[in-house]
Amino acid sequence: MSVKEEIHAQIVGALAGAKFPIETPEALLGAFPDGAETTCKSGDVELKAGDAGKVLTADDFPFKSAKEVADVIVDRAGL
């Protein structure tokens, strides 16, 4: 599994219990188990949920699924 695939899977897993749609960045952070401190790791790559705010825009919302969140984050994070 590539770093991108591993991080993607971890994001989807972290949001498994979230209620969708998620309408705001604050609601998205609140959906992660440890909020902004939720960390996904693969090899030397570490990505915190709080860092997602740097790559997401208001136009990205609402998110309809955990897969959609993960798709956008890993794509924009340049993994």
Rank of each mutant, 00 (worst) to 15 (best):
F63N: 00
F63Y: 05
G43D: 13
I22T: 02
I11N: 05
S65L: 05
E26H: 05
S65D: 05
G35Y: 06
G78A: 10
A16Q: 14
E68Q: 15
A77I: 07
S65V: 06
K48L: 13
A52S: 10
E26Y: 01
G43E: 14
P62A: 08
F20W: 01
C40E: 08
G30V: 03
L79D: 08
G78F: 11
T57Q: 13
S65G: 08
G30T: 04
V74F: 07
C40R: 01
G30D: 06
L29K: 01
G30A: 11
A52T: 09
D59M: 09
K41N: 12
F63Q: 01
C40L: 15
K64M: 07
A18H: 04
K41V: 15
G35D: 12
T39W: 02
K67S: 15
S2M: 12
E46W: 03
A9D: 14
V45D: 12
V45H: 13
L28E: 00
G30I: 01
G50L: 05
D71N: 14
K67R: 14
P25Q: 12
M1G: 13
H8A: 04
T38E: 06
K41T: 15
T57D: 12
V45N: 10
K19G: 13
P33D: 06
A9I: 08
G78K: 13
D34G: 05
